[in-house]
Design a protein around this nucleic acid. Structure first.
Lengths: 252, 252
DNA sequence: GTCTATACCGGGATAGAC
DNA sequence: GTCTATCCCGGTATAGAC
């Protein structure tokens, strides 16, 4: 991801365009892709993956047949098999790429940010949302298709999940230690932030229909989270005061 | 759901046991189920659905074959078809039951609660979590399997989603009007609460592994949400003060 | 009411021509 | 490197015995 650019490589003005990402995938799978010329391989891989992401978003990956995929990508059945040895490998290519990208991007805050927990938290929220926006079909695919598949696929997705959750937990921990955050249970709070970020790409259609912009959403989540956890100087500690009596609603 | 109990009907101490729910499903599908005796029909339906929920949670619904389902439920291939006319109907049975139950339960707050927004919000959160806990496999199924299936199935799930979101929006609206909540954007806030509740059943395995109890989670979400939106008497309005400068992190 | 046996189709994967 | 033709399995659904 954040590797040094090779001499002669294209400047890649769009690091999250499908073609650019497929170039990186190719590097990781030189062995399973039998096509030698790099530029034709990336081009075709891009068409395949663009197609599989599109079809899967409607029908799911398993329900997407290789025949459909061949038609949609413009290749033939046999042609597909020079890019992966079986359907499951195609799944893994996408999942690992998503996981790697997320870890590389979120693990590299700009200089100075990581030292200030409040700023770091804010950066994590905004960067996460913008990354998943730029690679929306990829993240939706990873989220939706990870379950119910062979163990290795599951693990990749789950690990990625937990990795980013740990980043949040780390920031919250440091912020709480410095006294800028007031948090009772760091791990629980970290796991509550995660779904707020995932909602943006998982339910993208809903937000699009409502006309919610990403700027609005970033601001909304940031305010929501900060209101919940920022330490407030002149106020009683959370979880103690001014609550009206519990109303234990047993399920009827 | 909240119908009057028929004379002679069992007292049903467990309204969310699989058998009890399948009794209700049977009422709604007397036409497609060809087995006449009610008690044998509900018993078998329960075994079928218990099996399909279990298998689908691992492999997904589409990947679960009717052969597997027959083995797991103890019925034969042919036997299954006296309970539904095709696989898709089985899917719809489950989805509609989940949607109906959620709406019936969440739409009936105990007397006095609906009048006080703070109490109502708290009741909604706790009831939602406890309901989805009691029917966890059902809700996971509905959440996971709704996408990628024929339009009618999609609609049922989406409608259910929006219905509960509207309940939250309504409460927040009233609370804001009364001045007990300080909320900039009611609709956005309502849609942020939803994923916090869904996370409990979608990622149930994670929380189980960590030893997070439902009481802990209820308290955690309640505190988180209330800290975020409860109006604070002696404090500047949200979204204005004491934030360190924005740190607009463009995706690198 | 439930089972066994079977029809039939669409899926993934491969062989070999071009 | 890519395509066409084909194999074979496993899926849904049904027919007819018990």
């Amino acid at each position: 991801m954040t590797r040094a650019r090779q001499a002669g490589e294209a400047p890649a003005p769009e690091p999250y365009a499908t073609e650019a990402i497929c170039g990186r995938i190719l590097e990781r799978h030189r062995d399973t892709v039998s096509v030698r010329k790099a530029h034709v391989a990336t081009a075709n891989l891009a068409r395949i993956i663009e197609a599989v992401l599109r079809l899967s978003s409607r029908q799911g990956f398993h329900e997407t047949s290789l025949r459909d995929l061949a038609k949609a990508s413009g290749l033939s059945m046999g042609g597909l098999y020079s890019y992966f040895d079986n359907k499951n490998t195609l799944l893994l290519m996408i999942l690992t790429e998503v996981a790697q990208t997320a870890e590389a991007v979120l693990g590299n805050p700009p200089p100075g940010v990581a030292e200030r927990p409040a700023a770091h938290l804010r950066w994590l929220i905004e960067t996460h949302l913008r990354l998943t926006e730029a690679m929306q079909p990829w993240f939706v695919f990873a989220y939706m298709e990870a379950k119910g598949f062979p163990a290795p696929a599951r693990r990749i997705a789950t690990e990625g999940e937990l990795a980013t959750e740990r980043m949040f937990a780390g920031v919250l921990e440091r912020g709480a230690a410095e006294g800028v955050f007031a948090i009772e249970d760091v791990d629980l709070t970290a796991s509550l932030i995660k779904p707020l970020l995932q909602d943006w790409y998982v339910k993208r259609a809903k937000y699009r229909k409502r006309g919610t912009t990403i700027e609005r959403y970033v601001a909304g989540v940031t305010d929501f989270v900060e209101s919940a956890i920022l330490a407030r100087p002149a106020q009683s500690p959370p979880g103690s005061a001014d609550r009206d009596g519990r109303n234990p609603a047993a399920v009827p």
